[in-house]
Amino acid sequence: MSKYLVNKFLFTVDRDPELVERYRDDPRATVAWWEATQANTLLNCVGAEASTWLRFEEAEREALATHDHPALFALGAHPFLTLTLFIALFERDHEGLEYQKWYGERLSHFSLPYPDIAT
């Protein structure tokens, strides 16, 4: 599993309002597009530098494509990256802190020690 790649997806999508909307409207296609075109670009580097081997595993791809934040958490995605992106995606559909409370409730079955988030 590549926690780095999942976290890179969460980080880069969250920082681009157009990608946030694209991911909200068509998550499966956005994940496929991002994996094919962005996964192997290096963060904070010139476009000519890239790797060639990074790919999501099927469980990662499916969790991202279905907005399944508990599965992402179980896979080791950083909870702050997941939370900030998912707030951008779904908070507008809820009043007050309803979304954040629902988000937390869906993670309530996890107990210490939490999944390792080190990359």
Rank of each mutant, 00 (worst) to 15 (best):
E35M: 12
G76I: 01
P115N: 13
A48E: 15
P17Y: 11
G104C: 11
R55N: 05
F80S: 08
R55P: 01
F56L: 04
D116H: 06
A88W: 04
D93Q: 15
L112D: 14
R28I: 08
G76C: 07
F9L: 10
D26A: 14
G76L: 02
V46Q: 15
F11S: 12
L54T: 01
R61P: 03
L81T: 00
M1P: 04
H69W: 15
Y4I: 06
C45A: 15
E58A: 14
S111E: 13
D68G: 12
E105W: 13
L83Q: 11
F90R: 01
L89I: 05
G76F: 03
D26T: 08
H78Y: 08
Q38G: 04
E35A: 15
H69I: 00
P115R: 13
Y99P: 02
A63W: 00
Q100H: 08
Y4G: 14
F80L: 12
S2F: 02
Y99W: 12
D93S: 13
Y4K: 14
D93F: 06
L83M: 10
H78F: 07
R106S: 08
Y99H: 10
L5I: 05
P27W: 11
Y4A: 13
V20H: 06
E95T: 12
R15K: 15
I117K: 03
N7W: 01
K101N: 11
K101G: 05
A50T: 07
Y103H: 08
E105D: 13
P70T: 07
D14R: 00
H78P: 00
L64P: 00
S2E: 08
R92M: 04
P27C: 11
Q100D: 09
T37C: 09
K8S: 04
V31D: 05
C45H: 12
S111I: 05
P113Y: 11
D14Q: 12
F9S: 01
L10H: 02
P70R: 10
